[in-house]
Design a protein around this nucleic acid. Structure first.
Lengths: 80, 80
DNA sequence: TCATATTGTTGTAGATATACAACATATATA
DNA sequence: TATATATGTTGTATATCTACAACAATATGA
């Protein structure tokens, strides 16, 4: 199981699933499946999505659950 | 089509396909298929491989052909 | 040479990803 | 209210990924 931040990245851009789907050339229902975690993106689609959102691929996908923003902040502070 | 450096990363470590396959828990023939470009890894397998080789995922996989070492060197020098 | 390991090829089968249609529900907006 | 848009659910069909078996070809080493 691979976790993803597609929904967050999409809504942050104010896009509908249909619009995102068109941008990365998949069916709009496929975006829904990914966001709900029904199945994983293919590697090809993962690269397309990461490229579209202009983030490194492991910012959009992760084999482990993503940290919350609060956890990220705490980790960043601890790293200083 | 996604390009990969699995063969390079594997041989660099002096591993056979069978050994690598065992490490990432797939059939050894699956490694062969990936190295030959017969098909792409799933996102899950891509993460496993990147983690095993301790490289960022886009060092092991890319939607565009990888640069040769010579090109990488030239690019690195130009960036200074 | 013989034996063994490694890789490539072909084929079958199962699992997963994607497309697409139909319909339900919710939400926003005229 | 009525209409449109967005999302969720279910089902079918196709493509792609993975496992596994059998065999050929090549290399490596005793």
């Amino acid at each position: 199981m691979i976790y993803n931040r597609i929904k967050m990245l999409r809504t942050e851009k104010g896009l509908s699933r249909k619009e995102l789907a068109k941008a990365v050339e998949v069916n709009f229902q496929t975006i829904g499946y990914l966001e709900r975690g029904d199945y994983n993106a293919s590697l090809e689609l993962a690269f397309k999505l990461a490229e579209f959102f202009e983030v490194p691929i492991d910012m959009a996908f992760s084999p482990r659950p993503f940290k919350t923003l609060a956890e990220e902040l705490a980790a960043a502070r601890a790293a200083e």
